[in-house]
């Protein structure tokens, strides 16, 4: 019996490591391939995509920084993503609070109209956003992108936050009112702290969208003062030629800060994502 248990424990352990190893490779291989490719020539990349570089082309990184001005674009991306996330969460949490916790005429109709925005293809909104932003004289400004990204993501944020806020027991608010909480305090002291998970989820959605968007960044900006990283990466794609290896170098440069930040703060990020998920 002991031998059986020992065999079982070894085979379970082996399986576990095999499984982990597979997922480790599955996750890491594309990134390793990207790093390796970023040190090749374009000729090597197209003719031998899975080989090691014959000569390590460090100049791809020099080119990546020189041609696209990545550091400035990185700062712009950070400002735009943080700004749009903050603005979106502020506005959507106010909206979701009213829809989830108050009762008024046409409540469901209005909520459905807002949430239906999720179904509208982003491409379909290009012309109206272009017109609005140029009319507001926000063309080629970071603020223009902040307002646009915050607005584009309002339907999904309201939808998510409404779901979270709706689940909060009404008794908590009633107790707060009895203790003297005003309408504003109900929002700020009761509902918002209890909707942390929803805010984190919606915030991640908005941040990732703002960080990764290319089409609106191209549409609404014309110079480096407002442009974001995604446009910098596209500087290596031209009409008939793509400088893949320099583009990969640019991608590696743009990914590295996120990885470093994640390594430093990963315990806090995971804690933030999971807090409240189990009873403590």
């Amino acid at each position: 019996m002991r031998r059986y248990n020992s065999f079982r424990s070894i085979s379970t352990g082996t399986l576990k490591w095999l499984f982990l190893g597979f997922f480790f490779l599955y996750t890491l291989l594309p990134f390793l391939w990207l790093i390796l490719s970023s040190f090749k020539t374009n000729y090597e990349f197209t003719t031998a995509p899975f080989s090691f570089p014959e000569t390590w082309q460090f100049e791809n990184y020099v080119k990546a920084i020189r041609i696209s001005g990545l550091p400035r674009l990185f700062v712009n991306s950070l400002i735009v993503s943080v700004g749009s996330t903050a603005l979106n969460l502020f506005v959507s949490s106010l909206g979701a609070f009213v829809f989830a916790r108050e009762r008024f005429r046409f409540q469901n109709l209005l909520l459905n109209i807002i949430i239906a925005g999720v179904l509208i293809p982003i491409i379909g909104l290009m012309v109206p956003y272009f017109k609005i932003i140029t009319t507001l004289r926000l063309y080629d400004t970071k603020l223009g992108l902040i307002v646009t990204y915050a607005a584009i993501n309002l339907p999904i944020s309201v939808f998510l936050l409404y779901g979270f806020m709706k689940r909060i027991p009404r008794e908590l608010e009633e107790a707060a009112v009895i203790d003297g909480c005003s309408f504003r305090q109900r929002y700020s002291r009761v509902i918002i702290p209890l909707s942390r998970m929803g805010l984190v989820t919606a915030g991640i959605f908005v941040f990732l969208y703002s960080w990764n968007d290319f089409i609106y960044a191209l549409l609404l900006t014309s110079s480096v003062k407002a442009r974001t990283l995604q446009l910098g990466i596209r500087f290596f794609v031209s009409q008939f030629f793509t400088d893949y290896t320099a583009m990969f170098a640019a991608i590696v440069i743009t990914i590295l800060p996120s990885i470093i930040i994640y390594i430093i703060f990963h315990d806090k990020i995971i804690h933030g994502l999971t807090s409240g998920s189990v009873k403590e």
């Binding site: 903050a86 603005l87 969460l89 502020f90 506005v91 140029t134 507001l136 004289r137 926000l138 063309y139 080629d140 400004t141 603020l143 223009g144 902040i146 307002v147 700020s188 002291r189 918002i192 702290p193």
Partner: peptide, 30 residues
């Protein structure tokens, strides 16, 4: 609770700052 109030005030200020910025932004000055 105090921390949340500070966050709320900060968010409110951000929003208030955005309104005049939108109104008077000089992205394309004549």
């Amino acid at each position: 609770m105090k921390k949340h109030s500070v966050c709320l005030i900060f968010a409110g200020l951000l929003f208030l700052l955005l309104i005049p910025a939108v109104a008077f932004a000089g992205g394309q000055k004549d």
